[in-house]
């Protein structure tokens, strides 16, 4: 049978793709020449400080404001040419979720369901249950806390049965328990249901814990993007902390092997930069033991996204990196 559905999305293709996307307000570029590639079926963080252009990027993607230059595609549909088809499978929260305060949570979802189509009605009750609002769905939204509104916003996304969720600072206003529930929910949406989540945040910890991949944005430009582990490492060599009772002997051994690039003393022990892959740690251990150096601790150094983020955004002030990013 021939597939005549021209709106079908290649599941292997990107969920979001932009080329040279630019949005100017007057002479100021809120986002500048952004090339973004968001793979399907992953949680993708859009990470940047306040005012970096995250919300403008989301508003441009969703057609809430028009792009000044560049091209973009959502779920394989060029936007704005096929905007309606693209957004049919998208759920989004932009900034703080807003509702008609004089209507109940359920009625607010009915409004959106009416706009989306009759098949959506049946998803209202399950979506409310999923975000934990089933029992309070018939209360007026003006009596909801900010956290409840956030959850209702997620329910409003879910009634679209979206392949792609675009969430702008979604944990704002949630208490620690709510944030943890939210993380579990996002991971379930990705891992169990194969949905793609594009999540903008200025909270590094949140992105590191929820997302598989991320782009770091600052001053309207995407500085770098990739898997979280790659971003955190930033291309640096693997490092080890070695705890030993004979540090001088250990340094002497490690400075005479090709397995190690550098070895210095630190408060935690010896900080060893490996020349090869992280699994060469075992060979380093064997080398030290064979040389009679007692090894009490061998611990890989975890690079944090926060560290990398701060390095990148601080370096943006340097002219060399400015030029590199512009290029």
């Amino acid at each position: 049978m021939t597939n005549t559905d021209s709106t079908a999305h290649d599941p292997g293709g990107p969920a979001i793709e932009t080329r040279g996307l630019t949005k100017r307000f007057g002479t100021r570029a809120a986002i500048s020449a952004v090339d973004l590639h968001v793979p399907c079926a992953c949680a993708f963080g859009f990470l940047g400080p306040n005012g970096a252009g995250k919300t403008t990027m989301i508003r441009t993607l969703l057609g809430l404001t028009s792009a000044s230059e560049g091209s973009m595609a959502i779920l394989g549909h060029p936007v704005p040419a096929e905007r309606s088809a693209a957004l049919r499978s998208v759920g989004a929260i932009v900034e703080e979720p807003r509702f008609h305060p004089h209507l109940t949570g359920r009625e607010n979802l009915r409004i959106v369901a009416a706009v989306r189509g009759p098949e959506v009605d049946a998803r209202i009750a399950p979506a409310l249950a999923r975000v934990g609002l089933a029992e309070r769905a018939d209360e007026k939204v003006k009596r909801y806390s900010l956290g409840m509104r956030q959850r209702l916003g997620v329910a409003r996304c879910l009634i679209a049965d979206p392949k792609l969720l675009i969430l702008d600072e979604p944990t704002n206003g949630l208490d620690p328990g709510g944030i943890q529930e939210f993380r579990y929910m996002i991971r379930a949406l990705v891992e169990e249901e194969g949905r793609t989540v594009f999540l903008s945040s200025h909270l590094l910890d949140e992105v590191e814990k929820i997302c598989d991949a991320a782009a770091i944005v600052d001053r309207g430009r995407v500085v770098t993007q990739g898997a979280i582990s790659e971003l955190a490492a930033g291309g640096a060599n693997a490092e080890l902390i070695v705890g030993t009772g004979a540090p001088e002997d250990a340094i002497a051994v490690l400075r005479n092997t090709d397995l190690v690039c550098d070895c210095t003393r630190s408060d935690e022990g010896l900080r060893v930069v490996l020349a090869g892959e992280p699994d060469t740690a075992a060979a380093v251990n064997a080398l030290l033991v064979e040389a009679g150096v007692p090894v009490m601790r061998l611990e890989p150094v975890r690079h944090s996204l926060e560290q990398r983020f701060l390095e990148i955004t601080a370096r943006l002030d340097e002219p060399a990196l400015e030029q590199e990013v512009s290029a």
Partner: peptide, 18 residues
């Protein structure tokens, strides 16, 4: 002006409806 005043207009726009 109700949808714009309550901030819901953008959520209706992102449904893709004209």
């Amino acid at each position: 002006a109700g949808d714009v005043a309550s901030g819901v207009f953008r959520d209706l726009v992102v449904t893709g409806r004209s």
